[in-house]
Simulated scan of single mutants.
Amino acid sequence: MLHQIPVALVLYGLGGWSWVVWGVLVRVAACFTMHWYIAHVAHTDGPQDWSVDDAAIQGYNAPWLAIPTVGESWHSNHHAFPASARHGLYKGQIDIGYNFIQLLALLGLAKNIKLPENLPSREGLTAESARAKEAARNF
């Protein structure tokens, strides 16, 4: 977490200790809490587009958490294609994290972005929904 020190120094210079508290401590605490929460919710129950044979834990989608988790809530898709930069695979699946990666690519700061369509096929992957079965033809 040493990378927070330069951020804290800049925030302190701009606004003092209150900026450090909100810009570092509260932000990091909120991010960790959301990460733990989505890990619990997305491994418990919900809609599922994909299942992975012999996986100890399956991933489920939590659409209502798409915005605060920046797209990580499309966890069924993430379990199906863990190396993919895009988690929101279908129309209406908000994936702000992937949108940011697209911006980085546009600026020339990201290359060789991994997506389901350019990843090697995966054994033991079962399409569970109609849209996943349709997409499986392209992946």
Rank of each mutant, 00 (worst) to 15 (best):
A135M: 10
P6H: 09
H87T: 07
H40F: 12
V70D: 12
V24W: 06
N138M: 15
T126P: 00
I67Q: 09
T69Y: 01
L106D: 14
P82L: 08
H75P: 10
R122I: 05
Q58K: 11
E134D: 06
A42F: 00
N118L: 10
L2E: 08
Y60C: 05
R27V: 07
Q48F: 00
A130M: 06
D95Y: 01
G97I: 15
M34S: 04
S121T: 14
H3Q: 13
W19Q: 12
K114A: 11
S51F: 00
G124T: 01
L115H: 02
G97C: 05
W19L: 11
L25N: 12
A130G: 09
L103V: 15
L14E: 03
E123I: 05
L25T: 09
V20Q: 03
T126N: 09
W19G: 08
Q48M: 04
T69N: 10
L14F: 07
L106R: 02
F100Y: 13
E128T: 02
I67N: 10
H43A: 06
A62Q: 08
A62L: 01
Y12E: 10
H3G: 11
K133T: 02
I113K: 13
A29M: 13
H78W: 01
K111R: 14
A127I: 01
L125N: 04
W74H: 07
H87C: 09
H43L: 01
A30N: 12
L65I: 02
P68M: 13
D53R: 01
G13R: 11
A8G: 05
T126Q: 08
P82A: 06
I5M: 06
V28F: 12
F139C: 04
V20H: 05
G46P: 14
